[in-house]
Structure formats: C-alpha cells, structure tokens
Design a binder for these strands. Structure first.
Lengths: 187, 187
DNA sequence: CCCGAACTTGTACGATCGTACAAGTTCGGG
DNA sequence: CCCGAACTTGTACGATCGTACAAGTTCGGG
C-alpha cells in the first residue's frame, strides 16, 4: 500500500462515488422504479460498461445510491439535534429545522420516496428506522417518550405535505403545535 | 339506445372497470414506476390487446387506475366525516378512523405512493389536494383552521409511519395528541 | 524495464417493454 | 335476415432494458 488510504490508480474510488451520487440524482428525478443503468452512467459521465464493472447488478448500483442517502440522513440527525439544542427550546429549533428541510423539495421528495420504498423491500428498512428511532432518541429525553412519538409524527406529516404540495412550512404554526404536544400531560 | 345506460354488448364497460381495478392492484404491488401493460392484462384476466383497445397508451391505462383510487378517497372522506361526527368527539373519532385506515397496510402504502407521485407529475395533483383540502374542510369548522392543519399533519404523519413500519397506530396516544392540538389557544 | 492485475471501453446478447394492426367474432338496428 | 360497427384476439414491430464480455489501456511491484 504505497499511497495509503483509498488507493487510486486512475481513481476507481472516485468513480464509485460518482456513480452512487448519480444514482441519487436519477432516483430523485424519475423515481426508484424507473432508474436505469444507462441514465446513471450518463449522469455520472462514465460509459455504460463502468456501471457493471463497479456494481454487478442494477440492485447493487441502486443500493449504493441509497447507502449515500442513508448516510446523509444520519448526518442530518446530528443537525436536528443541534437545532433543538439551541436557544428557543424544542419547538422553536425543531420547527425551524423542519422548515429548512422542506425548502429543498427535491431532496425531501427523494427521501420520502425512499422512506415509502422501505416498506416494500427490506433493504431500505434501516433507512426508515434510522430516521424514526433517531428522532425519538433526540426528543424522548426532552419531552418524554409519548410526546416524542407524537411530535415525530406531526413533523413528518408537515414535511410530507410540504414536499407534496410544494408550499413552504408555516414555521410559527408548527412551533405552536409542537409546543402543544410537548405540554401534553401524561396519561 | 335500446338497453339504456351504459350499453353493453359483450360487457365492455365491465372490462374497462376490470382493467382499472387491475391497475390499482398492480401499482400497489410493484409501484407506479414498474407497472406494465402485460402485468395489468394478466391481473385483469384479459389478453394484452384488450388493454390498448380500451386505453391507447400506458399513461391512459394507469390514469384510469388512479382515477379509481381518487374516487375511493372521496368516498373515504365521507367516512372520515362520519367517524368524527360520532359520539366521543373529534379526537376519538379521528384516531379510531386513522387506526382503521392504517390496518390495511397495502392500501395505505398505495395511497401514500400516489400522494408522493402527485408531486412529480401534475396529473395526480387533484388526488393530493382532495385529501388535504377535504380533511381541512371537515376539521376547520370544529377546531379552527390552524388546529385543523396541525391535526391533518399529525394524522398524516402517524398513518405514514404506520404504513412504513407496519406497526399499528397507537390509537389512545393519537387521540391524546389530537386533543392537545384541538385545545391549542389561538395565536 | 516489464508484466500481471486493475481498470476502461464499446459492442453485443436475449428478454421485455409499449404499441400497432390484421383477421376474426359478436351483436343490435333496419 | 344481414350488415356494419363494436369488440376480441394473437402476433409482430422497433426500442430499450440488464448484463456479459473481448479487447484495449494503465500502472505499481519486482
């Protein structure tokens, strides 16, 4: 191992990353069901043959893209936690972060599509779980398990609606609703 | 016009309906992006040629199926309103109906997939709007516009999560959350 | 220097797709 | 009775798909 981490004769690792990123772009554009080798290759700027060299089957290729999204969701969770930790409390931080998230409609749609696709094929299950459990882990210590689950559903619904309609999230209204759920008495 | 409404030589209208219903089944199984003429024909029990006779293009065929779902959502809205009108108030009726709805995971997934697909192609926009506006129309007179929107988001999120995870909705917890949002003071 | 492994590229394969269509069948109106 | 419109059916078309692979090219280790 001469040049250490990653190797890189003609930058195969870069191609692998470029292909995975191209998968994300293509899936965002046409949906999981319509993504093809050729679209991904064109988007990544590599010949068709390169796709099957790095990823033997289409399922492998798409899985590589989804892994990328999965990682970015994990990163996202950290930023959600940071937003909530800031001044203003859970309701302010959470609603601000949700409104920000929904502003990138393209990405929001992609993630919700994958979120749903997780129900059909088990290979995406971890992605959906990461989001739900991650949010619960962040919120539960601050508002209790029961309110955490309700707030996660509320925020999920608000972001889904924003992604579908294209309308921005009403941040003040969402904050108020989160507040109402946080204050809910125990059963 | 001898036999009046619908005509019906060898039951063409029945075939049309069978094809539309088959589209719904196929889309529910493999998703919008992977539904094909041949799958729909096989499911409907008609030869391939019949699909293009009744629906010139694949888009027409799929649109027919989605129209069916759209109609059933309109029917659903009536039953949501009925559930809310029953004894126990908004929170009880709504949470009970949502839990019922989520019990049919297959149908819930189908509808959420179409809901999302509405963001990509404008031909499904009415479907998404029908749901959002319909719920708002039902809830707003009872809890106010602001709470109506928050509750719709909450219920949407809860049903989406149930559809994705396959877990049933915690009806009592949802009712409690709806209650909290209904009682929220005006801004 | 050079050689084998790693990578690249273009082309080709059978399968399946959406769609077209010719030839048959059925049926109600005149 | 019968004829044309409505419907049925099977087959065939070119396009596109996932995947395989032979022939080249590059590059680091010995």
């Amino acid at each position: 191992m001469a040049s250490a981490a990653g190797g890189g004769r003609r930058d195969p690792e870069g191609r692998r990353r470029a292909l995975a990123a191209a998968v994300v772009a293509v899936v965002a554009e046409v949906g999981v069901g319509r993504a093809t080798h050729r679209m991904v290759a064109a988007r990544a700027g590599v010949p068709l043959g390169a796709t099957t060299y790095y990823f033997p089957t289409l399922a492998d290729l798409i899985a590589a893209g989804l892994a990328l999204v999965s990682d970015s969701i994990a990163d996202d969770l950290a930023s959600w936690e940071a937003a909530i930790g800031e001044a203003g409390g859970v309701a302010q931080g959470l609603s601000r972060r949700a409104a920000e998230y929904a502003r990138d409609q393209r990405r929001a749609l992609l993630e919700y599509e994958l979120y749903l696709a997780a129900a059909r094929g088990p290979q995406l299950r971890p992605l959906a779980r990461a989001w739900l459990d991650g949010m619960h882990e962040i919120l539960a210590p601050r508002v209790g398990a029961r309110a955490a689950r309700a707030i996660t559903a509320l925020v999920d619904g608000a972001m889904l609606q924003a992604a579908v309609t294209g309308d921005p999230i009403d941040q003040a209204a969402l904050a108020e609703a989160i507040e109402a759920l946080s204050a809910s008495p125990r059963p």
